[in-house]
Write a protein that binds this DNA or RNA. Structure first.
Length: 265
DNA sequence: ATGCCTGCGGTTCGCAGA
């Protein structure tokens, strides 16, 4: 089973390149982030025409996540349990969507994750980021009790190590590279989850995001889109790739590119 | 040290992204 994640930075603005990538990459399951639309605005028909079921947890203007699947989907659950609220806000931000997908040889629990950016730091946005990641960690810990293959994938907005940034010194004051942010990444690992990309590619210098300010041309990127696997999923890991070419493949690309795993499920 | 560029909403510049 091929399972991908991609922060599209607006699904409406990215519809054509998204359809082109789906036809070429042909993933069974895709977790999307930053769809930037309410559920009713999601271009569901275009994906259904390619054979995908669509589970959407949208939001106006910002955030929004979705799961596309060619395989049967059940137990669709929007929202992280006990997610914190941003200071001064009453509405929850749409940053987490979980579902169970049935493959030929068993089930996989998949979550589409859009963790808060956290800038500027310090400040309420950084506090929200850390509080949200802590709730994610507690939920991830609870999910381990099910002893299922679990795939927690998406835009974590965390640069794990210096080797995951082309210019690490440029990020030392950024929320994405703070010790507290990086500690949350390690705490997920310490629960027993495996960073699928790092497990198969130990060297640095592989990125999933390049900003729109010319960093693409200089390969000034960062690796912030991650795929965490429960032990039962990690045991079935057969491949993990970053579809780097997608950043160059269209006139209007997302600033993120897809990352995917192949699992023997 | 900062902006660079992009998308959204709702009319047009402010906010957010990372």
């Amino acid at each position: 089973m091929k399972i991908a994640t991609w922060n599209v930075n607006s699904i409406k603005a990215r519809l054509e390149p998204a359809l082109a990538w789906l036809k070429q990459a042909d993933p069974d399951v895709v977790c999307l982030q930053e769809i930037k639309t309410v559920d009713e605005g999601f271009p569901r028909e275009a994906f259904e025409a390619l054979g995908y079921n669509c589970a959407v947890y949208g939001q106006r203007t910002y955030n929004g996540v979705a799961i596309l699947s060619k395989l049967p989907v059940e137990d669709v659950t929007p929202g992280l349990p006990d997610a914190p609220l941003m200071e001064g806000q009453e509405e929850h931000q749409s940053r987490y969507l979980e579902a169970v997908v049935t493959g030929l040889h068993g089930i996989v629990r998949v979550a589409s994750i859009y963790a808060p950016n956290g800038n500027p730091q310090p400040g309420p946005k950084f506090d929200y980021k850390l509080a949200w990641l802590e709730r994610l960690r507690l939920h991830a810990k609870m999910l381990l009790q099910g002893e299922e293959p679990v795939v927690l994938m998406g835009d974590y907005n965390i640069i794990p190590e210096e080797g995951d940034a082309d210019k690490p010194k440029a990020w030392v004051k950024d929320a994405l590279f703070q010790p507290e942010s990086r500690a949350m990444y390690r705490r997920l690992e310490n629960l027993g989850y495996t960073d699928a990309f790092r497990a198969l590619h130990t060297q640095g210098g592989h990125y999933t995001f390049w900003d729109y300010f010319g960093s693409r041309e200089r390969n000034n990127g960062i690796r912030i889109d991650h795929i965490f696997l429960s032990p039962q999923a990690a045991d079935r890991l057969t491949g993990c790739r970053i579809d780097r070419d997608v950043r160059w493949a269209s006139e209007k690309p997302s600033d993120h590119v897809p990352v995917w795993v192949e699992l023997a499920i």
